[in-house]
Computed example of a mutant assay.
Amino acid sequence: MVSAARSFARRRLLTTAAALTGAAFLGGTAHAAETRKGAWPAQFPLPNGFQPEGITIGAAPFAYFGSLANGDIYRAALATGSGAVISKGLGAEHPTVGLKIGRHGRLFLSGGASGELRTVDARSGEIEKVYAVGGTFVNDVVLTPDAAWFTETYKAVLYKLVLGRHGAPVAVENLPLSGDWVQGDGFTANGIERTPDGSALLVVNVVAGGGGLMRVDPRSGTARAVDLGTAKLPNGDGLLLLGRTLYAVQQAQNAIDVFRLNAAGTKGTAIARITDPRFRIPTTAAVWGDRIYLPNARFDVEQPTPDTDYDAVAVHRV
């Protein structure tokens, strides 16, 4: 159930707090609370009780957020911070965790504990199709030219939603993970991105080596650990790649760790850590201009209610 999965996530966040002192210290620290007068809002509210987790921003200055509570999609204008629910979810058993918007206006949603992938027309809000993949927790998603790739938290597998003409979904395929992949007894895979050269996928594995990145061959499923030096991602969640700069949200640490990758994504160097007093366990990140936007998931709230407040914040790119 969604509530059980959410409780597990909170338990993991709280029990891993002890690992924070052992997490790698990244060379630079950027505090990004200051904003220019007259600028677009650097913080804006989301609906009370919404329980946000994922965020995506497309070719226009609008951010889309998914709800863990019921699967709703909320769209906010970055220029004003105002917004509205544009797609109703399927209910409490069908959360929206990660999400991405394609260039043809289609949203790709990870269904969490429902074991679903879903697609939504971002213009009409209509749920186009639901794919029951038999997953235990479909977590995050990244788009490539020919597919939407989804992580599975409790199984050593990725789900590939093959895309055809105009980005339309065609079929779902499973890609078993092998090589250096370590599947823990519980929560393992989380965020996903592409390598800078587009040849492979990068997947957060919070178990292997104390938490880090795996580079996955999208043809064979062979995973190899990315060399991040002494840096660890024990609380790694959403990933955001901008050129060769990778932003990895460390949710329970209220931080974003920033790495400079080589083109193939086999090696990364820690270059900065972004912190901000407005962070309340951010989970995922998306970019517009010189800003990175994140939803505050507030996983430290043990029992969210319809009145629990949520918001999104923006920080400057490194």
Rank of each mutant, 00 (worst) to 15 (best):
M1W: 08
S7R: 14
F8I: 14
F8W: 13
L13K: 13
L14K: 14
T15G: 04
A17T: 14
A18N: 09
L20E: 14
G22V: 14
A24V: 12
A33K: 10
A33R: 14
R36Y: 00
R36S: 07
K37Q: 10
G38P: 05
G38D: 08
A42F: 04
Q43A: 14
P47G: 09
G54M: 09
I57V: 11
I57G: 05
A59H: 07
S67H: 02
S67F: 06
L68Q: 08
L68N: 05
A69S: 11
N70E: 11
Y74C: 09
Y74Q: 01
R75P: 03
R75G: 05
R75S: 08
A76T: 04
A76Q: 03
A77C: 11
T80N: 12
V85I: 15
G91I: 02
G91N: 02
A92H: 12
H94S: 14
T96H: 01
T96Q: 02
G98I: 03
K100G: 01
I101W: 00
G105H: 09
L109T: 10
S110D: 11
A113F: 04
G115Y: 11
R123V: 13
S124L: 03
S124T: 15
E128Y: 01
Y131I: 13
Y131W: 15
V133E: 02
V133Y: 00
N139W: 04
V142P: 02
A148V: 08
A148W: 02
F150G: 03
E152D: 09
E152F: 07
A156F: 06
L158H: 03
Y159M: 02
K160P: 03
L161N: 04
L163N: 08
L163S: 05
G164V: 05
V172P: 00
E173K: 15
P176R: 06
G179H: 02
G184W: 10
D185Y: 03
F187Y: 15
A189K: 01
D197R: 04
D197L: 07
A200I: 12
L201C: 10
V203S: 08
V203P: 02
V203C: 09
V204G: 03
N205G: 12
G210C: 07
G211A: 06
G211K: 00
G211V: 10
G212W: 00
G212L: 07
M214S: 03
S220K: 11
G221P: 01
A225R: 14
V226I: 00
D227G: 06
D227C: 07
G229L: 09
G229D: 01
A231C: 13
L233C: 07
L233R: 01
G238P: 03
L246Q: 01
L246P: 01
V249Y: 01
A252K: 04
N254M: 06
N254E: 11
I256Q: 04
I256C: 05
I256P: 01
D257M: 11
F259W: 02
A263M: 04
T266A: 12
K267C: 04
G268I: 10
T269L: 11
A270C: 06
A270E: 04
I274K: 02
P277H: 07
R278I: 10
I281M: 15
P282C: 08
T284P: 03
T284V: 09
T284C: 05
A285Y: 03
V287L: 06
G289S: 05
A297Q: 07
D300T: 08
V301R: 01
Q303W: 10
T308L: 02
D309I: 14
A312F: 00
V313Y: 00
R317K: 13
